[in-house]
Every structure is written in C-alpha cells, then in structure tokens.
Computed example of a mutant assay.
Amino acid sequence: MAARFKLSRRGVGKLLRSPMVKAEMERRAQAVMATAVALSPVGGPGDPHAGRYKASWSPDSTARGGRRRDRATATVRNTAPYARWVEYGTERVRAHHVLLRAARSGGG
C-alpha cells in the first residue's frame, strides 16, 4: 500500500512562523552581517566618517514577514546615511556591493 500525504496549509503556516524557523533566519542574518562587516570599506586618512559604515550593520527579524506576512524572516541593513552609495556606487566612486556579496555567501 502506497503512503499518502495530505498537505495542511494551516500546519505549513505554523511551521513557517515557528520559533525554530525564526531562529534559523536569525542565525543566517547574523552570518550575512558578519560577512558584510568583514567586507565593509573603512575609509582613508582624510575621511571624517572612517569606520561609520562598518559599524552601522544591524540584523532584524520577525515571525510575520514576507509579502503575505505569513512567515519568519530576517533582514540585514546598514543605517549609515550613505550606505546606498557604497553599495551601488556613484559616477565617481565604484560600487562595492557589500551586502550583495555578503548575501551571496548564503549565511550558511
């Protein structure tokens, strides 16, 4: 006799919001953040904000994230006011893609 499986959407929803999944998302966010900190540029001798970008990384997590607010998620962000230009670059400064490279590491 073949085994049968019936999907319980409610059960899958509980799993996706469970403390176990949230803890894993937080662990991965910490790993991505550690990689981002290691890759962060610090600035040169004339930089008035040397090290600010590197010190501005922070993780955040929630059990109600995602597009439908139905799963645990974790986010890594940089709160430095110029973080966007470090990541994507400008016409005068090359893009560093710190968060992109850190996320590609997978946090695993």
Rank of each mutant, 00 (worst) to 15 (best):
K22V: 05
G11P: 01
G66T: 08
N78H: 06
E24H: 07
A3N: 11
A72W: 01
R4Q: 15
E26V: 11
A29E: 06
K14I: 10
G65H: 04
Y53L: 15
A31T: 01
S18E: 07
D70Y: 01
A72I: 00
Q30T: 08
R69L: 12
S8E: 11
R67H: 12
L15F: 10
A38K: 12
S56Q: 09
K14H: 09
V37A: 04
S8M: 04
H49Y: 14
F5R: 06
Y53N: 07
M25Y: 00
L7W: 06
R67M: 10
R69S: 14
R84Y: 11
E26D: 12
V21R: 01
A29L: 02
P41S: 08
P41E: 08
D47F: 04
T35V: 11
V12F: 11
N78D: 07
G44H: 00
F5H: 10
G13D: 13
V76T: 07
V76S: 03
T79G: 15
A23I: 02
P59C: 11
G66D: 09
A50H: 06
G51M: 08
G44Y: 00
P81M: 05
H49I: 09
T73P: 02
P41R: 04
E24I: 04
G11V: 04
D60H: 13
R27G: 11
S8C: 05
R64T: 13
T35M: 11
L15R: 04
